[in-house]
Design a protein around this nucleic acid. Structure first.
Length: 267
DNA sequence: CCCCCCCC
């Protein structure tokens, strides 16, 4: 394996933009096992998590997740520390990226909802570049799989993606915990699908406080967990979740068309 | 290197 080089200072200051080059050999996102031969992937940014502070070893470090998609699949990537700080507000959905010199690791399906068997780890030698001049063609981009509300019960150990119309946004509730006496903030949001099935999504703390979406919004939630209580299943949000309003996918468009039928405005 | 989100 070739020795990998550190980023230059200039590359750390921003995401460098480079011209699309069709002769660059890239691995398709669904073929990540072949990555050892190439170490380059290309894809469109389809999801960016919030930047969160995690304790890693003894240090506090930023952690950021984002997802790329191409015509074959979706891959989740993780960046840490200064790299995460540097790129988190520069990554935009729809940007075409090229990533060189990353690490690859097997996913933990409890935290990865892409359907890919592998994910990308960005380190200090990884080059993340915005590709300009990408050809418009190249086939339909893959999207992640949405779990139907009635299938949520079979996915308790797996991160999932859900989509629906917001039927109801609950108030914030203060929940005292038995163990630590800490007060938790909680908010429940009810989603409705195209068949008027519903599903409750629970947000905690800052995510509960900062919730901005309202009834009749069509949202997709990626990277959610499944919660079970007394045989009742609901969706809970991990810190890495991403909510997108009016996401560009077939289901979102379909729900938009059914909106007045599902959720009349007079209600 | 994260990976956790907690209550009835």
């Amino acid at each position: 394996m070739a020795k990998r080089k550190r980023c230059t200072v200039e590359e750390f200051a921003t995401i460098k933009r480079i011209q699309y080059d069709e002769t660059t050999q890239c691995v398709k996102l669904s073929n990540m096992t072949e990555i050892v031969k190439s170490w380059i992937v290309r894809g469109e940014v389809s999801s960016v998590s919030s930047l969160r502070l995690c304790t890693i070893g003894k240090a506090q470090k930023s952690v950021l997740n984002f997802e790329l998609r191409d015509d074959t699949g979706v891959v989740r990537a993780t960046a840490y520390g200064k790299t995460a700080d540097r790129i988190h507000d520069k990554l935009q959905n729809g940007m075409n990226m090229q990533i060189n010199n990353f690490k690859i690791k097997a996913v933990n399906p409890a935290f990865n909802s892409t359907g890919n068997d592998y994910e990308i780890e960005v380190d200090e030698r990884t080059l993340i570049r915005e590709l300009i001049g990408c050809p418009a063609t190249g086939g339909e981009k893959k999207t992640v799989h949405f779990t139907e509300f009635h299938d949520i019960q079979s996915t308790t150990d797996t991160a999932i993606n859900v989509i629906g119309v917001i039927k109801r946004v609950g108030d914030i509730k203060e929940i005292p915990t038995q163990s630590s006496g800490k007060i938790l903030l909680k908010r429940d949001v009810t989603l409705m699908d195209d068949k008027k099935n519903t599903c409750v999504v629970t947000m905690w703390n800052d995510d509960a406080k900062d919730w901005i979406y309202v009834p009749r919004d069509i949202i997709t939630i990626s990277g959610a967990g499944v919660n079970e209580f007394c045989g009742f299943y609901s969706v809970k949000l991990y810190r890495t979740f991403v909510v997108v309003k009016d996401a560009v996918n077939e289901k979102s468009v379909m729900l938009k068309g059914l909106l007045d039928e599902l959720m009349p405005e007079s209600q």
